[in-house]
Structure formats: structure tokens, C-alpha cells
């Protein structure tokens, strides 16, 4: 909590910009946890933690980055604490390897080369997308669209920066399995972005 003596670093928690960050945090937590209640809890906890340690935020990093850092730690703690609830065998069974692999195979011909329609196109200046709001909406939608169990592994790896070994330990799956799931997530996300965002500029060769 900020008090009089901490005016220099005082943060106005009901400022519209904070409200907007809070909304983004909630969306992030929801993507991550796929559980609206848990997501709300995490954001609350992160906000409380941020308020408690507002003094330690001395403009070291952008405010939003700092807030998201706290949120990520909260989610990591939550996942570690509840790892026993996430059953690794569920993960593997639900994934139905046969069906998923078939899906996957459709991108390639019998010899394992790209089908012409699915061959990754050239994206011109993709980084320009970062400044476009619609891009992030589509990115969110593509993440949402991943099957839950694949998204969970992908989010743990890429958003929460878990090492693969820890993901495997927590979910009780093998390294190989983990790699296949991550590969599938990347393949799916790429496809989704290309179809829904970059498609207009596809250059077929």
C-alpha cells in the first residue's frame, strides 16, 4: 500500500490506464488457465502483490511489463501448487494421438512434403503486425482455438518459461511427448495466423 512517504512512486490504482492493464491481465490469465474463476483470482492476487511492493517498482521496467511479471509468477505458483490436479495421463489420453496425428498429416503429402495449399507462404514485414490491435485479437483467438491440453503445455513453455523437463515432471509425460505437443501447438498456431491474418499477402510459388 502506498502512503504519504511514498508519494514519489505513488501509483493511482483506479487510473483508467491501470484499469486497461487489469483487463489485459485478465485476458492473459484466462488464456493461460482456461478457468475464468481461477484467472480472476490470479489477477486479484497479482494486483495485491503489486500494491504491496509498489515501492520496489522504481521505473526499472515499463509498468505494464512489471505487472505482467508479477502475474506470471502468480500463475506459475498456482500451477506448481495444483500440479497434482492436472493428470498427465488425462493429457495423453485426451490428446488421442491417432486423431491428432492424422490432422497433422493432412498438411503433408504421402512423402512428407508440403501440400501446395498448406505450404507456408512468405509473410511480408510480419513485425508490423505487432502494432495492430486486430493482430492481437487474432493471435488470442488462435491460442484459444488450440485444444486445451496442447495449449496448456504450450503456454507453460512459452509464456511462463517453464523448462521442458519441468513441464514433463509436472504433467507426468515424457520429453518426447512434450516435444510433439509443442510442435503441434506451433504448427497449429502458424497455420491459424497464416489463414486468418497473413493470407491476403500470400505469395505462392
Amino acid at each position: 500500500m502506498t502512503n504519504g512517504s511514498a508519494d514519489a512512486t505513488k501509483i493511482l490504482w483506479d487510473d483508467p490506464s491501470i484499469v486497461a492493464i487489469r483487463r489485459d491481465m485478465l485476458r492473459f490469465a484466462q488464456l493461460q488457465l482456461r478457468d475464468a474463476g481461477a484467472a480472476e483470482d490470479m489477477v486479484q492476487e497479482a494486483l495485491i502483490a503489486a500494491m504491496d511492493s509498489a515501492k520496489s517498482f522504481a521505473g526499472r521496467s515499463a509498468f505494464k511489463t512489471w505487472m505482467f511479471g508479477i502475474l506470471r509468477h502468480k500463475i506459475v505458483d498456482h500451477l506448481r501448487a495444483s500440479s497434482r490436479e492436472i493428470c498427465g495421463t488425462d493429457l495423453v489420453e485426451q490428446a488421442d494421438p491417432q486423431a491428432e496425428l492424422k490432422d497433422f498429416d493432412a498438411l503433408f503429402d504421402q512423402r512428407g512434403f508440403w501440400n501446395p495449399d498448406d505450404r507456408p507462404a512468405t509473410w511480408t514485414d510480419p513485425d508490423a503486425s505487432f502494432s495492430q490491435k486486430q493482430f492481437w485479437e487474432i493471435f488470442d483467438a488462435c491460442l484459444d482455438h488450440l485444444p486445451d491440453q496442447i495449449a496448456r503445455v504450450y503456454m507453460m513453455r512459452e509464456f511462463l518459461d517453464f523448462e521442458t523437463a519441468e513441464i514433463c515432471r509436472q504433467l507426468g509425460i515424457t520429453n518426447g511427448n512434450c516435444w510433439v505437443i509443442l510442435h503441434r501447438a506451433r504448427l497449429g498456431l502458424r497455420e491459424c495466423l497464416e489463414n486468418n491474418w497473413f493470407q491476403g499477402e500470400a505469395i505462392q510459388c
Binding site: 505482467f68 513485425d127 502458424r190
Partner: peptide, 20 residues
């Protein structure tokens, strides 16, 4: 390969709240 690097970069931004 390029798209994979792009995905990485996008995710980095998103997780730092850079999306908005």
C-alpha cells in the same frame, strides 16, 4: 523457420503485456 521465430517474438510481447 521464419514463422517460428516470429511466433516466439509475438509470444514474448504478449507475455510482457505488450499486446496493447
Amino acid at each position: 523457420g521464419k514463422h517460428m521465430d516470429f511466433l516466439r517474438k509475438a509470444v514474448r510481447r504478449l507475455r510482457e503485456g505488450g499486446a496493447g
